[in-house]
């Protein structure tokens, strides 16, 4: 869930444990889905914490954790410019095309 910023260390205290994003595969055949985030000192602990936090009720058969700092995200400020190239290419959708009457299996 944390997509904003890495927390800064507090004055006088230990630096906070890094933030990890958690992805869970609910069942075989489904993709891993982002379910939230957590703090942990290392990957192994992150995986254990993720199990305890996000799969207490058999919500998953597989978990990925990855350091939030390792994610490169597109910026919402340039959202429109960034995704613009796709906006005027309706011909990429099958619905753009008229199918002549009688043509089957299209």
């Amino acid at each position: 869930m944390s997509e904003y910023s890495e927390p800064t260390s507090q004055p006088g205290g230990a630096p906070p444990a890094p933030l990890w994003e958690v992805f869970v595969r609910a069942r075989r055949g489904l993709a891993h889905t982002h379910v939230g985030s957590l703090h942990a000192a290392d990957a192994e602990l992150a995986l254990h914490n993720a199990r305890d936090l996000y799969t207490r009720r058999q919500e998953g058969v597989s978990i990925w954790v990855l350091p939030a700092a390792a994610i490169t995200a597109s910026s919402p400020d340039e959202k429109d410019a960034f995704f613009d190239p796709a906006a005027d290419k309706v011909y990429r959708h099958p619905t753009f095309y008229e199918v002549p009457e009688g043509a089957a299996h299209l």
Partner: peptide, 20 residues
């Protein structure tokens, strides 16, 4: 405990840290 952690994580998306 889990609910507390989900919520701290939601708060962190607003730019504060859980430690704070």
């Amino acid at each position: 405990a889990g609910h507390g952690l989900y919520l701290y994580a939601a708060a962190e998306t607003l730019g504060v840290s859980r430690d704070e």
